[in-house]
Amino acid sequence: MDILYFAWVRERIGVPSERIETDAATVAGLVEELRAREDRYAAAFADLGALRVALDQELGDFDAPLAGVREVAFFPPMTGG
């Protein structure tokens, strides 16, 4: 699965994307796995209320299932316009 990070999430984790193997059933489960990896992940995912997630380029929820998903992106609330 490809994991993408944008804006300050990318800066905290230190890479724009990475490919990982995961058995997590949901986005929240994936976040738990990432948090347990290293401090930089724990720092980036400290407050899920400050984060948004997209599954295969569609906005989703942290309780969304990961079955069949190829790309997950984490980022702060968007500031376009």
Binding site: A7, L59, F75, P76, P77, M78, T79, G80, G81
Partner: peptide
């Protein structure tokens, strides 16, 4: 305009002499 502001995946960063700062989304948005 309202939807582009908070539902299109863009992130703004302000650059000043003091450094760089990610713009926060607002409750008003």
């Amino acid at each position: 305009m309202d939807y582009l502001k908070s539902r299109a995946p863009f992130w703004k960063r302000e650059i000043t002499a003091a450094g760089a700062h990610w713009v926060d989304a607002t409750d008003a948005d």
